[in-house]
Design a protein around this nucleic acid. Structure first.
Lengths: 132, 132
DNA sequence: CTGCATCCCCGATGATACTG
DNA sequence: CAGTATCATCGGGGATGCAG
């Protein structure tokens, strides 16, 4: 989905959209931005499975494609926040639908959605909020 | 996205949905089924980039997850058609939106959506409809 | 903290061949 | 035609280190 080439042939609009938000993590990233701007490490906590590298890469592509905005506060230490752009916000409805559909799917398949509960691991329960 | 394990932890519904339709080709396959049931090789023509193996695999997973139905006519030579299931049909609205969003995206980025036109290559213009 | 570059491995994917 | 199995490959993506 990271076509850098300026032009590529598409057959249907869906293909274009998938090139933009079809990445393995992109929809999930966008979903977490629906509730407001987030910092880099904040997203990492929300999506523990994603690696540092992948998050950075996906964010860059999403920014390049104009679905999210990168707000660099130009502070030191660095502070950067990501938020849905105007175009990205057009996906809010879809993302919301995906959320509900997924929950309903668990109900259908397993009878309940309990396997969605967050396992309350966390070695340090009262984590010091990234002691930087 | 091919979690065979019966249970896996999810944090938000979006993750579940992405496990079902987040595959590289799945949304596109579903989109092509919106306009009606399709046969295996029919889908291959609609999505030339996908390999035989991948199409088979993605179809199996989509069927397993209940978003599409496999209609085996049990004829010889074999005839099988795929169509959206009831659950799969719930995505029609989204797929339609993706289609329009993609077209609009091309307009925004390039000013027009011309690069979406099918290039009329085809060595054999009047292909014999799979002369089997 | 945010972000980029390198190295490297493993698994997704393609090619091919075979079955029904 | 529809679908599976096997094998080789290639690049996605993880781990790590460095920079601003």
């Amino acid at each position: 989905m990271e076509q850098e080439q300026p032009r590529k042939k598409y057959r249907v609009g869906v293909e274009v959209t998938l090139d933009v938000i079809g990445g393995k993590w992109k929809s999930l990233i966008l979903y977490h931005l629906v509730s407001g701007k987030k910092r880099f490490n904040e997203l990492r906590r929300l999506i523990p499975e994603i690696s540092h590298k992948m998050l950075a890469q996906q964010l860059r592509e999403l920014e390049r494609d104009g679905v999210l905005l990168r707000c660099d506060y130009e502070e030191v230490p660095p502070k950067v926040e990501y938020e849905l752009s105007e175009y990205g916000s057009e996906f809010i409805g879809v993302l919301d639908f995906f959320c509900h559909w997924g929950e309903a799917h668990l109900d259908r398949v397993y009878g309940d959605r309990r396997l969605m509960l967050e396992d309350p691991f966390e070695p340090e329960a009262d984590l010091p909020d990234t002691a930087d």
